Simulated assay, not measured.
Amino acid sequence: MATWYDHPQYFDMVFRDETDAEVAFFEQAFDKFADGKVKRLLEPGCGSGRLVVGMAAKGYDVTGLDLSKPMLKYLRDRMKRRKLPGTYVLGDMTEMNFDEPFDATFCTFNTFRHLLDEAAAEKHLRSVAANLRVGGIYILGFHLIPMDADPECTERWRASHGGTNVSVTLRVMDFDRKKRQELLRVSVKAVKRNGKVEKIRSEFPLRIYTPTQAKKLLAKVSDVLAIEGIYDFDYEIDEQREFDNDLTDAVFVLKRI
């Protein structure tokens, strides 16, 4: 059975509907929080690159970085088809080293949680800061887990594009608060226009954060990144959230100081 990350087209289809809202929020956040003009952008852990494409289509100079060769190839081919310029880097989001600083960086929808320990998470944040100009911003989004959260969770999505119908099931297979990890299984069934069926299954761990644990982590890097705004996945620029135990779908706007 094939794996999720070897089939970027399905990954892209599932989250495509979120793109317009995120792109609009990014631009609003640039205007509200960044010092000076924002032109050069970086997405660490860009995956299939739906946000790279979305921001490049708006005229930004965008660099996407990822560890997956299939994801980067899919992104490169898609940008080429749309005749959009971009830069694609095979690399680790904890060890980034670019010649010029970026004006803004973004990493949303739990990519950050693939960093499985505190050291890697802090290293990533400091690597972002080192590649971000003073006054630039980092938009970081990931789910937080309340202390009373039900560890048994299943989510399902459906998506269609170009005659292909995709159904996705995301299930929590294991949940360990002590180790601060949950194991997720993603099952994908794709039915193509010609009737061919493709099934994909992947399992991967993600790091768990409560609001308190996220607050402690961000405090560790407060010498280089300051919290300027807190939002949720509704992406309403005029509706900030409190950093409290009710915050679950968190989007942090961090400024390089």
Rank of each mutant, 00 (worst) to 15 (best):
D77E: 15
R78D: 15
R78W: 09
M79G: 02
M79W: 01
K80T: 15
K80I: 09
K80H: 14
K80E: 15
K80G: 14
K80V: 11
R81W: 12
R82H: 09
R82V: 03
R82I: 01
R82D: 11
R82T: 03
K83C: 12
K83D: 15
K83F: 08
K83E: 15
L84I: 09
L84S: 10
L84W: 05
G86I: 03
G86C: 03
G86L: 00
G86W: 01
T87M: 03
T87K: 06
T87Q: 06
T87Y: 01
T87W: 03
T87A: 06
Y88P: 08
Y88Q: 09
Y88A: 14
Y88S: 15
V89W: 04
V89Q: 01
L90I: 05
G91H: 00
D92R: 00
M93H: 02
T94Q: 10
E95K: 05
E95L: 01
E95T: 03
E95Q: 04
M96A: 09
M96Q: 05
M96S: 08
M96N: 05
M96Y: 08
N97K: 10
F98V: 05
F98E: 07
F98P: 01
F98Q: 04
D99P: 01
D99S: 13
E100D: 11
P101I: 00
F102D: 08
F102C: 10
D103V: 01
A104E: 04
A104D: 06
A104H: 08
F106Q: 14
C107L: 10
C107N: 14
F109P: 02
N110Q: 12
T111F: 02
T111D: 09
T111V: 13
F112C: 05
R113F: 09
R113L: 13
R113T: 15
H114C: 10
H114E: 09
H114F: 13
L115T: 10
L115F: 11
L115N: 12
L116C: 07
L116S: 06
L116E: 08
L116F: 09
D117Q: 13
E118F: 11
E118K: 13
E118T: 13
E118M: 12
E118S: 11
A119S: 13
A119F: 11
A120W: 07
A120I: 06
A121P: 02
